[in-house]
């Protein structure tokens, strides 16, 4: 809004926004604060400042949650999912955006509908099928599930990027003798690469944080993701809340740093599919 607001309106607005920020930050502050404290101090007062700071929490958390293994699993899982989703979805998004095939409408409908399908509708037969095929505890098997789960969203988002590319560019390349594949890979892909980066970030975040499928399909302690490693640590092995919060912080920090650094892309990507004009 480009008009001048009265001082009172502005003050009230900032108070409301400040309360919102407090609500959002308070639990995160508790997380950071208590990751630095011994368990006994947390029992006394979770709000007290850490004095002295207990850095061992992080060492213990790293070892007990087996992060040197589980972080690799998480990176492998997120990385494979990103590669699979970005490569398959950009192909589909291009065809659907440009209406290259007669049945584009049916497939767009179908993919839209699967974005809202409940996981419970397919997870049970899938689990027992995976068990038969020996794919339980297999990170790549889970990456395949994530790919199916996230690619409708990716196709829908990338579609909007492809639609925005002027048709003339494509036609010019074809007149110059490029094949259809060259038009896609050499002309279209570079133009929509910001969209692909956005998709990669959001898919990476989702697969890093995912709980239900990872907890169901990865069961061996050395095959789980970092998030599930944390879940096991906090559920069974430890009642040292300083250590649990330290483990939480270790998982959250890379995500938050990446999010703050790439906030524009994250927010545009998340909001992109949802804002209706």
């Amino acid at each position: 809004m480009r008009m001048v607001e009265s001082r009172a309106t502005l003050t009230i607005s900032y108070i409301v926004l400040g309360i919102g920020a407090f609500i959002a930050l308070f639990p995160i502050a508790l997380l950071v604060l208590n990751s630095l404290k011994p368990a006994a101090l947390i029992v006394q007062n979770p709000l007290a400042l850490p004095n002295p700071i207990r850095w061992e929490n992080f060492v213990n958390a790293w070892n007990h949650a087996k992060f040197s293994k589980t972080f690799i699993n998480s990176l492998l899982l997120s990385g494979t999912t990103i590669v699979l989703v970005c490569s398959t979805s950009s192909l589909s998004a291009y065809v659907l955006a440009r209406r290259k095939i007669a049945s584009w409408k049916i497939w767009t409908f179908y993919l839209l509908a699967t974005t809202t399908a409940p996981i419970q509708l397919y997870i049970f037969p899938l689990y027992f099928g995976f068990a038969k095929l020996g794919l339980i505890n297999n990170v790549f098997g889970v990456a395949l599930i994530y790919t199916a789960l996230y690619s409708p969203f990716a196709v829908m988002l990338l579609r909007t990027y492809f639609i925005a590319v002027p048709k003339e560019l494509e036609e010019a390349a074809l007149i110059d003798g490029a094949t259809h594949w060259q038009v896609f890979s050499k002309v279209m892909l570079p133009i929509v690469s910001p969209g692909i980066l956005t998709v990669a970030l959001i898919i990476g975040l989702n697969s890093w944080n995912e709980f239900l499928i990872a907890a169901t399909f990865l069961q061996k302690a050395d095959k789980v993701t970092a998030v599930i490693g944390f879940y096991l640590l906090s559920g069974q092995y430890s009642s040292d809340w300083g250590e649990i919060m330290a483990a939480a912080l270790i998982i959250v920090v890379p995500v938050v740093v990446l999010f703050v650094a790439m906030q524009k892309r994250f927010i545009e990507g998340m909001a992109g599919g949802s804002v209706k004009g």
Binding site: G20, L31, V227, V255
Partner: peptide, 30 residues
């Protein structure tokens, strides 16, 4: 307010990017 809107937006979005397991444990324990 316009001024600071980006800061608040990022702060409000932070809980969205934190894994559900972690959010759950922070509320449960802390």
């Amino acid at each position: 307010v316009r001024r600071g809107s980006n800061f608040f937006q990022v702060v409000y979005f932070l809980p969205v990017v934190i894994a559900t397991v972690i959010t759950a444990r922070v509320w449960q324990g802390m």
